[in-house]
Write a protein that binds this DNA or RNA. Structure first.
Lengths: 347, 347
DNA sequence: TATTTCTTTTTGAACGTTCAAACCCACGGA
DNA sequence: TCCGTGGGTTTGAACGTTCAAAAAGAAATA
């Protein structure tokens, strides 16, 4: 409160100039050993801390990473991004950055927020989540030469990755889930997912279909698409189970759908359709608290690792100097992490 | 990217001085109508946005609110603070503030982070969550005259509230839960909570005990204390149900405990102890996605409203001018919100 | 007309930092 | 002795804003 120690105070205390103090802090190798120690002692003694605003004004770097916090729609899947956010905050802090939050209803509103933030707080970088086909947010940022890392692939973009990204291999996840069910003796394994067109959803469906085919099972007719939600999942699962394909297990694109599927499965198991002997296997995605509580086998995303990787890529971007808007050609790094299957009662 | 419009650009474009532009933005009433419009037009046309860093350097206000994001221990109760955080971000944005995140392992680490943040980013205010007895964080901030609002009462502080706070009336919540069970015909209603000493836990227990007494039931022996967690809850609930008190329903301090209680209740219902006819009623706290998924009746906290209220109190603090460290005497505002009971299958 | 008063606008300085360039000094070579 | 070199340090300026005070106009009063 009373203090507010500036670089000038430190300089005076150590008997050097402002700039020498600045050098000690930013480019220590340029300063003589003995001077450096003297300055560092003064820094400690006075409890000096660099003023970010002043530094930012001069350097243009804010050491702020902006990211969005979103409302969890059905409350089940929301926890995924919250855990990511926690990891991001920690990883950013380790790298000397802080996380600045914003909310936005849709892509257009988010871009408006970009403009706002860039004018006012000038975040050094953006971490975007929930990438999708035709995502206008990334291109908006990239056009302006702003550092971006997305948690989520650039879906639907032709060939080379246009920016740095981190993602979790959804197809590998559902493939592992399907294999797990095959190993348990299931053959007619269904898939409960979202309508085609969502990158994440298509990817997860693909992993299931591929694995089933490799096992000699034709996936045709074994999948259903619906919007995400417990009730939607239950309805779709019930319809699938009641159809002629006689599925004995379901791989789901989310824990919400899986919970719905489980409800449908229970009523089917004891009801008319299913063979009474064996319960219908259900596997979800995201390993949310709900899956854990209800005992649903699910795919766990390494969210802390994903967040840490985002920060690593970001610091690499930021240290590598700013890239002019048009200059593509340098390969944008990307990392694909593997989810892991957490086996519970539902399989 | 190319732009970076400054106040000088706007001034030139509108044919006035820097200061006039600044006045239009900050104290419009001091500027002549016609000039004001001219300046505002220039602002629009050039897409000017005030540079927060420069403003902060001059005024000392960052328009940043710092708050902590914490790891969700068992993943169930974590969602509560996440929803609060979302509300806080939205409310802050409406009031012209942004939320800056940090993490900290414990109170001491959090205070170290305060020092860090204050030196570097100079947040205008702090929103603290998870207040508890002997909370050193609030006093640290208050001693330095920093604006604080806590989401959570100042537990264990003698009389007048030493700072502004917002909280949800836990006792009223468990009282409502208990009444609900009494209305349904239960008499021997147990309580599953945390060890005495936690403000929140004691408060919730108190609401249950008070209501039970008012209905002429002695709560003695009907409650159990354990650490928060599904397994802990199950163990404690099983022990309580197996004891001589023959509880027919349980009010729980959290959804984690409630889930555990539900597991215990199910095995007891069909097992030896319970009367087979009627299932044991269970009520949780926080209305988490898990409670919804499993069908546990639970108490829902108005988190968005709590967050909005925090921001309201904060802006009042910040506009009311800075308070010198020692100056108590002005009443610190506080708001106690009511939770609402969401009735589900478990009762 | 000169003086005062009030409203509106402008000017200079300052916030705390870092960049760029200048400076100082010891040293080695001509 | 003089000059060049280079490591180490200092000086002046600048980032974009707002505060405080000065200045300029306009209106009212003497």
């Amino acid at each position: 409160m009373a203090d507010k120690v500036t670089i000038a105070d430190v300089a005076r205390h150590a008997g050097v100039s402002r700039q020498t103090v600045s050098n000690v802090l930013n480019t220590p190798e340029v300063v003589r050993e003995e001077t450096r120690r003297r300055v560092l002692d003064a820094v400690d003694e006075l409890g000096y801390r660099v003023n970010q605003a002043a530094r930012q004004m001069r350097t243009g770097r804010s050491r702020l990473i902006a990211t969005r916090i979103e409302p969890d729609h059905d409350g089940i899947n929301g926890s995924v991004l919250d855990r990511f956010l926690h990891g991001l905050t920690e990883a950013a802090a380790r790298a000397g950055y802080r996380v600045l939050l914003y909310t936005a209803e849709d892509d257009a509103a988010e871009i408006a927020t970009f403009e706002d933030l860039l004018g006012a707080y000038e975040p050094d970088a953006f971490v975007l989540t929930g990438t999708h086909h035709g995502d206008i947010r990334t291109s908006w940022l990239l056009d302006r030469g702003l550092p971006v890392v997305t948690f989520g692939r650039p879906w639907g973009v032709p060939d080379a990755a246009p920016h740095a990204w981190v993602d979790v291999d959804g197809a590998a996840g559902t493939a592992a889930a399907t294999r797990h069910l095959l190993d348990a003796g299931h053959r007619r394994i269904g898939f409960l997912g979202w309508p085609a067109g969502s990158g994440v959803g298509d990817d997860r469906r693909e992993g299931w279909a591929r694995t089933l085919r490799a096992a000699g099972v034709d996936p045709a007719g074994l999948d259903r698409a619906t919007s995400d939600g417990v009730d939607d999942g239950e309805t779709a699962a019930r319809e699938l189970l009641a159809s002629g394909v006689r599925a004995t297990a379901l791989v789901c694109a989310s824990d919400s759908l899986a919970l719905g599927a489980l409800h449908a499965a229970r009523s089917t198991d004891t009801g008319s359709g299913g063979r009474a002997g064996r319960p219908i296997g259900v596997i979800g995605f995201d390993d949310t608290p709900v899956a854990k509580a209800v005992g649903i086998t699910s795919l766990s995303q390494p969210l802390a690792e994903a967040a840490a990787t985002c920060v690593t890529l970001l610091t690499r971007l930021l240290d590598g100097g700013p890239r002019p808007p048009g200059s593509s050609g340098d390969p944008h790094p990307h990392v694909l992490l593997q989810p892991s299957l957490v086996v519970r009662r539902s399989t």
